[in-house]
Design a binder for these strands. Sequence first.
DNA 1: GTATATGCAAACAATTTGCACGCCT
DNA 2: AGGCGTGCAAATTGTTTGCATATAC
Lengths: 121, 121
Amino acid sequence: MRYSQQREVILNLIQNTKIHPTADWIYSKAKTHIPKISLGTVYRNLKKLEQDKLIATIYDGNVARYDSNMEKHDHLKCNICGDLIDINKNNIDISKTILRNFNFKVSDIEMTISGTCKKHT
Amino acid sequence: MRYSQQREVILNLIQNTKIHPTADWIYSKAKTHIPKISLGTVYRNLKKLEQDKLIATIYDGNVARYDSNMEKHDHLKCNICGDLIDINKNNIDISKTILRNFNFKVSDIEMTISGTCKKHT
DNA sequence: GTATATGCAAACAATTTGCACGCCT
DNA sequence: AGGCGTGCAAATTGTTTGCATATAC
């Protein structure tokens, strides 16, 4: 992958925030560094960065968010502000542990387990 | 909520399939019963049915899928065909149990825990 | 009769893509 | 020089909405 200033700015933005930003947020921040940058460029670079495993995509409802924490981890999602907070599975015991460690009151736990179903064995 | 043939067909379609269909799938099946049904009607009824807790929305990547199994449950998602298979959390012990019970080879477990973060206490 | 539901089409939001040009290597 | 990356605008996709008409109750 060849160097480009746009890609560098985009990656830095993602790495320097904890908010798991959307493409739009990245676009508006990037414009303060590169006023002429386009939204298409943002999306193209996000795809590339994901392919190169420099970032990961999190689908939050029907909006994509981007995360540069590439260690396997999960999220606490606040029902009120929508913030996503990183957690390691190791930290999880049960709701009580989460309440204690994160001061986060759990109302629901959702899980998607992926893999290969029996049709492909 | 007042009766309508459209809504009845839509709900029946969701209840009679295990595939967690998308709005588009529902629309095309519904047309075989009600040729003039519109996609707008499908979406409006999906919203209503969700508000009335007759169905639930599952966000799968960036597409919404609809599920009439209203008991709390999670999903196994096949990496190859994209199918979502229902599971009860009770069934989950670990990957091995899943392999045994569902003949499903687990490659990843993702979890979103929602609730209220400390900013709102 | 009146409120709710419908079909249709236009509007929207998020994301992708074709094209001519620009800039790394 | 050659190819990857860019800006711009138009195209796509999934979903929502305004409006006039139709239907349940």
